[in-house]
């Protein structure tokens, strides 16, 4: 464990807490893409299949449980909670995430480290996580109303991934055999997807103006 990875995990945890707080306290999910949240639930469901079979550490198991619980409860809130679901913008959140899931599944079947069910599912979860933010970014472009919490949520998600890249550089330099191209490339693609959001988010923060994404 290194500082980059720990702060990455904490930033990731913060992003889901911010989102849950937003939904739970103001009972609204305006501006949040259900498609992205469903993709994240799928990411954790397919990545943490070995949560009860391969014990890594107490920290690892607890964090996995938290991510599974938060991602599925966010999806539940947005789909079934009688008040929250009313603020879900289903006309605008129309990204057909099946067009993201299928190519990721095909790619995972072709490009993986070992052709076993668990390894293919794990690789699939990496590819899905790389593109999971797309429906949310599309929704932000469309609705233009990026409220603070949604902006912070996306920012924290991007920051967690950027910290993970530093973690991989650190581990590559300190653990000689730590080479994982699949993880690195999908993580890099994911972080690059946030690049333009970061640019506008930091600019709006510097100029102290409301965050506006270009048309």
């Amino acid at each position: 464990m290194n500082i980059f990875r720990l702060s990455g995990d904490m930033t990731h945890l913060m992003s889901v807490i911010v989102l849950l707080l937003k939904i739970h306290t103001i009972k609204s999910c305006a501006g949040i893409s259900l498609k992205t949240q469903e993709l994240y639930a799928l990411v954790f469901a397919t990545r943490y299949l070995d949560i009860f079979t391969d014990f890594v550490s107490v920290y690892n198991t607890i964090m996995k449980l938290i991510f599974l619980a938060t991602s599925f409860s966010i999806v539940w809130y947005m789909r079934h909670h009688k008040i929250v679901r009313r603020s879900y913008d289903k006309e605008q959140d129309t990204f057909r995430h099946l067009f993201l899931i299928l190519p990721c599944l095909i790619l995972a079947l072709v490009v993986n480290e070992k052709f076993t069910f668990k390894e293919v599912m794990w690789t699939f979860s990496l590819y899905v996580e790389a593109v999971a933010i797309l429906p949310q970014l599309v929704l932000l472009q469309r609705t233009k109303n990026i409220d603070n919490l949604t902006g912070q949520y996306v920012f924290l998600l991007g920051a967690y991934r950027a910290l993970y890249i530093l973690n991989w550089i650190y581990r590559y330099l300190t653990e000689k055999h730590f080479v994982h191209w699949i993880t690195w490339i999908s993580g890099l693609v994911q972080t690059l997807l946030y690049a333009d959001f970061f640019y506008y988010y930091i600019n709006s923060w510097k100029n102290n103006v409301r965050l506006q994404l270009p048309a």
């Binding site: 995990d9 890594v56 690892n60 991510f67 480290e113 794990w122 994982h180």
Partner: peptide, 10 residues
């Protein structure tokens, strides 16, 4: 190679 070390990450 020890147990797949990328799997110790979240």
């Amino acid at each position: 190679r020890p147990k797949d070390d990328a799997k110790d990450e979240l």
